[in-house]
Design a protein around this nucleic acid. Structure first.
Length: 690
DNA sequence: ACAAGCAGTTTTTTT
DNA sequence: AACTGCTTGT
């Protein structure tokens, strides 16, 4: 070991008082967190207690007291959260924190790996796989398996991908994973294990990394190259981690590594809002932080500034049945406010009409559309409502659900770009070749064998026994690839060229609904034009898939800011004057997938808690009493078990009544004897009209 | 032998 | 809306 010289910190000798204009914005608990000196600390921040504000002021405070911005690392859950916090801190400081290292764990690790990849046997221009890319790779390997497992109930690519992901970021053994989560596949353990190995070596051979690799390979790098770790960790004088409750084991180890030199780690989170277990998040990270960092202090933020007392009462009640949590009780100094309403609707249509009419009514009363949100468990829970909103001309944006870059037609376009960027990308080659008429899986595979990806001219067609059936379209494809490859043209123009080439293919491949897909391509072209080069476009799309409907292509000046529709997961960290929680059904919340496991059900409970605590003033929870299923036809639903026992003084049962003038539609829609039975065992509608 | 078209099943949440 | 398996057509 080389000699070490200890030098004293430059500015940190005394922690200065917060300047007065800072401290007047903070309460006592927040101020303690903001002005925390050195050493590990966990800030348990309940919903609506000013967690973001605290982090922003913490950033500003550190910079203000002389810490160099590039020595601060801010790790967040989304890139949006990082930019927002850095911008807000910059406002407090006249822009002096631009150089804070910030972003998601994945983006941060990508930055490290780009620099050090050769040290762990990867090329420095490795390709990043997004989740559908990696599923495609797995599918290729899966289809190569011997026939004894094909055709039987061998897990599908997405299932395999989820298994592999769980193995990696939780550090589990396959045997245990199968036993606990996939007992039906235990007989295939050997083949799955082999596939897992093959997937890893395939990625290494081809220079590919998936999301989990970004985390796990960074850890491997740190482990095998202590000098790299020291170099990185030395620059991490202050590490701030947001949403700590949703970190997985690998991420917790990365935090541990980054803090290994200075130990100034501030983790901020709310154990009650841990909702990403399915992705490997481990609530044990936040619950065990004090043990992991032996000298850690725990600070709590409990003063809620967001919600009325009534909403908070309901939230506290819901959380009351959670078993694992830090003790904290949120309080507010706000008024009591209206009771949250529980609204059973006869069916989906009624529920949509209720929400849309209520939205209009609230708008009349002066609540802006973008101050209201409709939340739901699954991306597709809002389809019916979306139709209704369109019919009523109510503008909305939807967060969560399908990503733009996961739509098949966008993936087609992206595959062309990827092939130009990396001619060895056989997955993308397969995709674009099969778009040609007369080319299927077999032919595509054969053409690929004939191609020479290593040559200087990867997009030149050499002499091969191509069939006349597709040779013309193949020439067309290569001609467009050559044009994009050769000229140094901006990505926007490259996209234009591809779109021009792709337009007839789109019409042929999606002859039924191509008019719906064409606007997405324009939208994508608009986003792509903002990037300086192809590589950064592809990287950004992989790291942070674009919401399909979240951005208007060109937001017009006097457009009213739209109503927000969002999955509960995507609404994390947001707040709204009025919240509608729809489809609050058993089987949806909690999801029927979760009911086998107590832990999973408890996560669904926290999800309900997150949804409820988004609301500031008004909260409406609704569900349809009847739904339709393909073959069974109509069937009766059950309201969410989390709401079934809530006393009426916390959650007011309401009923929907059709206005007298518009006939008795309601009566005829509901078979009455069964309805009576349903109502007698469940909730009793009150008399409030809507 | 292989591609294309049709019918029926199945959909959580996301970096 | 996408994926799978089956049938038909080249």
């Amino acid at each position: 070991m080389s000699r070490q010289f200890i030098i004293k910190p430059e500015s940190q000798t005394e922690i200065r008082e917060l300047s007065p204009e800072f401290s007047k914005d903070l309460n006592e608990q927040q101020r303690r967190a903001v002005t925390w000196g050195a050493g590990p600390v966990l800030v348990v921040a309940g919903a609506g207690t000013g967690k973001t504000r605290t982090l922003v002021y913490r950033l500003a405070y550190l910079v203000e007291t002389g810490v160099q911005p590039e020595h601060i690392v801010l790790l967040t859950f989304t890139r949006r959260a990082a930019t927002e916090m850095l911008n807000r801190a910059a406002l407090l400081l006249d822009g002096r924190c631009q150089r804070v290292q910030g972003g998601t764990f994945h983006a941060f690790c990508l930055g490290i790996l780009k620099r050090y990849a050769p040290k762990i046997g990867f090329p420095s221009n490795f390709t990043l796989l997004d989740s559908s890319d990696s599923a495609d790779v797995i599918d290729v390997l899966r289809s190569r398996l011997s026939t004894d497992v094909r055709g039987k109930r061998f897990p599908k690519k997405r299932t395999l991908q989820n298994m592999f992901s769980a193995l990696r970021n939780r550090g589990m053994k396959l045997e245990d994973l199968l036993e606990s989560s996939y007992p039906q596949f235990q007989e295939y353990a050997e083949s799955i294990e082999r596939l897992f190995q093959e997937y890893a070596s395939f990625k290494k051979e081809q220079g590919l990394m998936d999301y989990d690799d970004l985390l796990v390979l960074t850890l491997m790098l740190f482990q095998s190259q202590p000098s790299v770790l020291r170099e990185v960790a030395t620059r991490c004088r202050y590490v701030l981690v947001d949403e700590y409750q949703d970190t997985n084991r690998a991420q917790a180890l990365i935090v541990k590594a980054l803090g290994s030199v200075h130990g100034n780690v501030m983790a901020v989170g709310d154990d009650a809002q841990s909702i990403y277990r399915f992705r490997g998040a481990d609530q044990a990270n936040i619950l065990g932080f004090p043990q992991e960092w032996s000298s850690a202090t725990v600070l709590k933020l409990e003063h809620n500034y967001r919600s009325t007392q009534s909403i908070l009462d309901l939230a506290n009640h819901i959380l009351g049945s959670a078993t694992k949590k830090y003790d904290k009780e949120l309080f507010t100094e706000r008024e009591k406010g209206d009771l949250p309403a529980l609204v059973p609707a006869p069916d989906d249509r009624f529920e949509s009409r209720f929400v849309s009419q209520m939205v209009l009514q609230m708008r009349e009363q002066g609540v802006a559309l973008n101050e209201m949100a409709v939340l739901f468990r699954n991306g597709h829970n809002s389809y019916d409502l979306e139709v209704e909103l369109n019919r009523k001309n109510i503008p909305f944006v939807k967060y969560g659900g399908l990503k733009l870059s996961e739509a098949a037609h966008i993936k087609d376009v992206l595959a062309h770009l990827k092939v130009v960027e990396n001619p060895k990308d056989t997955i993308s080659w397969n995709r674009i070749l099969q778009l040609l008429e007369g080319v299927g899986p077999k032919t595509a595979g054969r053409i690929l064998e004939w191609l020479d990806a290593d040559s200087d001219q990867p997009f030149a067609l050499n002499e091969r026994p191509y069939s006349a059936a597709y040779i013309d379209s193949l020439r067309g494809l290569f001609s467009i690839l050559r044009r994009i490859h050769s000229a140094n043209i901006p990505p926007a123009v490259q996209i234009e060229l591809i779109l021009e080439y792709y337009a007839p293919i789109l019409r042929r491949a999606y002859s039924e609904d191509y008019p719906k897909r064409e606007p997405d391509l324009e939208h994508f072209a608009g986003i792509a034009s903002q990037f300086a080069d192809r590589a950064s476009l592809l990287e950004s799309v992989a790291l942070d898939p674009i919401d399909l409907t979240a951005i208007d292509v060109e937001p017009e000046e006097n457009d009213e800011p739209p109503l927000v529709l969002s999955t509960i997961h995507s609404a994390k960290g947001l707040e709204f004057d009025t919240v509608f929680l729809i489809q609050a059904l058993d089987g949806v919340m909690p999801s029927s997938y979760s009911v086998g496991s107590e832990e999973a059900v408890e996560e669904e409970l926290r999800l309900m808690y997150v949804a409820v605590t988004r609301a500031e003033n008004q909260l409406f929870i609704s569900y349809p009493m009847i739904q339709y299923r393909r073959y069974e036809g109509q069937y009766f639903t059950k309201p969410s078990r989390f709401l079934a026992e809530v006393p009426a003084k916390l959650l007011e049962p309401c009923s929907l009544v059709e206005e007298a003038s518009s006939s008795n539609e309601l009566d005829s829609a509901v078979p009455t004897p069964e309805l009576d039975e349903f109502l007698s065992q469940g909730l009793h509608p009150g008399t409030s009209d809507v």
